[in-house]
């Protein structure tokens, strides 16, 4: 390059003394305020109220699970990336998010090795095996959770959430759905909304999930299409069943504020990597996830279906990307 520049016959010394002038093709102007890392940091910020409520209600149970999963995920990512001879990637914060979400979705009393195994499976089989960030087909945290849920069915079942000897209120009571199924006790909506119930530390407080989710949507870090269509579908199906059997005691609001629905809608289903690309695709994804959640909740033996619903929809995301019609501006037809 220096040779070439000397050839330019510029008399003005100020111009010819320029250290180097770069050449590249347009655009020459990139958005400095938007990077993958900053998007991930936004998710971490949005998780703050959720983590806060989890620690408030579950005390050391939550702190333990979150720290175990966070540390194991970071460690797992570092080890696996090293094994694959890839560059150090912890600074993009995506492993930290997986760790936090996994930690927030495990039962508080679950033993330490559950979190560790879940984290290593999440990072290894859920993410690195596909090629690291951006390449995975399934939400890593949910892969890890599904693995431990099947491997340690006892600790992960509804009874696993309860430690009746515990000093912490939340952990000593039955989970809302179990209380309802076993003894017909319907939890108060307000308790569900605030989070005075037992469950996974991250999902109990509806208000914290809504706060964090709104922040993500307003910052456009996640696409609003997914939570809106997902929750919309749940509301429609939920009110339909409310209408069919009004006396059941498990109302639409129990569906909305109970279980992992809001946490899943805002933090898990919105994972950009494992959700579709186009706005219409995202709506299809949200509707599909919402419908599967209600299907699993109402008809299956599993207490709550958010995890399996998200994993199933992750699996069909490539098909959604391929099949959902898309129309270029000015094109005559939709094409898919």
């Amino acid at each position: 390059m220096p040779e070439k520049e000397q050839k330019t016959k510029i008399e003005n010394p100020e111009i010819s003394m320029i250290p180097h002038i770069q050449v590249a093709s347009s655009p020459h102007f990139l958005n400095p305020s938007l990077t993958t890392k900053k998007m991930m940091m936004d998710v971490l910020i949005a998780l703050v109220p959720v983590i806060g409520m989890a620690i408030y209600f579950f005390r050391l149970y939550a702190v333990k699970q979150i720290l175990i999963c966070l540390a194991s995920c970071l460690l797992a990512e570092a080890i696996f990336m090293k094994m694959r001879k890839k560059s150090f990637s912890l600074f993009d914060c995506s492993a930290a998010i997986t760790g936090l979400i996994l930690g927030l979705s495990l039962p508080g009393p679950a033993p330490w090795y559950v979190g560790v195994i879940g984290s290593f499976v999440a990072m290894g089989i859920g993410k690195i095996i596909f090629g690291g960030i951006g390449m995975n087909l399934f939400n890593p945290a949910m892969v890890g959770r599904a693995f431990v849920m099947i491997s340690f069915a006892g600790v992960m079942a509804a009874s696993g959430y309860v430690d009746s000897t515990s000093m912490v209120d939340a952990v000593s009571m039955a989970t809302p759905l179990n209380a309802f199924k076993q003894s017909g006790i319907s939890t108060a909506i307000f308790d569900l909304f605030m989070g005075f119930t037992n469950g996974s530390p991250g999902e109990v407080s509806a208000i914290a999930c809504i706060l964090g989710g709104l922040y993500l949507c307003l910052r456009r870090t996640v696409s609003w299409e997914i939570p809106v269509s997902l929750l919309g579908t749940v509301i429609i199906i939920g009110s339909f069943f409310d209408f069919l059997s009004p006396q059941e005691g498990w109302t639409l609001f129990h569906h909305l504020f109970g279980g992992a629905l809001l946490f899943g809608a805002f933090f898990i289903a919105t994972d950009p990597v494992t959700s579709p690309l186009t706005p219409l695709g995202k709506i299809v994804f949200g509707v599909g996830t919402g419908a599967l959640i209600m299907l699993l909740r109402i008809f299956s033996g599993y207490p709550e279906g958010v995890m399996f619903a998200v994993l199933l929809m992750n699996g069909v995301t490539p098909l959604i990307n391929r099949w959902v019609p898309h129309r270029t501006l000015g094109a005559q037809h939709y094409r898919s």
């Binding site: 951006g134 950009p272 690309l277 270029t328 501006l329």
Partner: peptide
């Protein structure tokens, strides 16, 4: 870095491409 398939490019493309 790797594409994280966030779809922001789809949200801004004035020609509605992917």
């Amino acid at each position: 870095t790797n594409c994280i398939r966030c779809g922001k490019c789809v949200d801004v493309c004035p020609m509605h491409l992917i």
